[in-house]
């Protein structure tokens, strides 16, 4: 029987890990939407590709034998997803950006396509991925899955770095400028299309990394895209569009609520709760976000 304090610690770590995951997924999505008012429904598949990428890398034996190598492999997978995102941007996203309807439908169709490819290749058997750090880790008096710790640490580092880049560099300022006032940004000589392309790449890499890191602790299935997409959408709506800090806070908040709800009320209630939060957030903040074509 766990002591309450131990249980609390466990829950805390899980909250942070879950929140970090959601933050990694949502931040890229928020940036892309801010940078170009582009709703990239394909974002969920970046997560999926990262997860399957980790699986493929492991299955092919490139995963390496120690934690450092496996982490490196995850980063490489993420970079691959980032490059894929850039290609996707030029092939599908940019041509569709003019019409909101086309944006939504091409994103959906692309999600289905990727899901079908993996389904055809791997069938219905779920893929399992080796964790980066196997086993558990003792923090204080608590046993926690080491993988969750890795997720939390990596996410924290990345998010801090991203925050630094956005606030302290000129390029980061340009990204924020495009998000706030695209017209004004153009007048400064900033090219919004290039900014958007780079932002999409970054978003793909972050979501891919999230997928690669989450894969060991989850069942990897072809329909993971909708899970990631709904989380990203929920977090961005709750956190407020255009506010990176808000997105991060919403991500950790959502993660915490889900973990606690699962612990207290069971999985069904937690799932329902997570979705109800989404619906509630949408109802309370129904700002006209997307201009109709």
């Amino acid at each position: 029987m766990h002591e309450p304090v131990t249980r609390l610690f466990e829950l805390l770590t899980l909250c942070v890990a879950r929140g970090s995951l959601y933050a990694l997924i949502a931040v890229g999505f928020a940036l892309v939407f801010g940078a170009g008012r582009v709703l990239n429904l394909f974002h969920g598949s970046f997560f999926l590709l990262g997860a399957y990428g980790a699986y493929v890398v492991g299955a092919l034996g490139f995963a390496g034998s120690n934690a450092g190598e496996r982490l490196l492999a995850a980063v490489l997978v993420a970079s691959g997803v980032g490059i894929f995102a850039l290609i996707y941007y030029y092939l599908v996203l940019r041509p569709s950006a003019a019409s909101w309807l086309r944006l939504v439908t091409t994103g959906l169709a692309a999600n289905l396509l990727v899901a079908e490819v993996f389904r055809a290749y791997y069938g219905t058997r779920s893929a399992s991925v080796q964790p980066i750090v196997a086993g558990t880790v003792r923090i204080g008096s608590v046993n926690v899955l080491a993988q969750e710790v890795v997720v939390a640490v990596v996410a924290a580092v990345l998010l801090a770095a991203l925050g630094w880049v956005l606030t302290r560099t000129l390029w980061g300022a340009a990204v924020r400028a495009v998000a706030q006032d695209t017209f004004g940004a153009r007048l400064m000589g900033i090219n919004p299309a290039v900014t958007l392309a780079l932002t999409v790449t970054l978003a793909g890499a972050l979501a891919g990394l999230a997928g690669a890191l989450a894969a060991p602790t989850r069942i990897v299935r072809p329909d993971m895209w909708s899970f990631a997409l709904l989380k990203a959408l929920t977090v961005v709506i709750v956190g407020g569009i255009g506010s990176l800090r808000g997105t991060c806070m919403a991500a950790y908040g959502l993660g915490a609520i889900e973990v606690i709800a699962t612990a207290w009320l069971g999985e069904t209630a937690a799932e329902l709760g997570g979705v109800l939060i989404a619906v509630a957030a949408l109802t309370i903040r129904p700002r006209g976000v997307v201009a109709d074509a």
């Binding site: 560099t169 000129l170 300022a173 400028a177 706030q180 006032d181 004004g184 400064m188």
Partner: peptide, 21 residues
Amino acid sequence: HLFTDMTVWENLLLGSYRAGF
């Protein structure tokens, strides 16, 4: 069309974006 969430300093810097930091 100022960047309302950014400081005056950042707005000015962005004015010379093409010239570099």
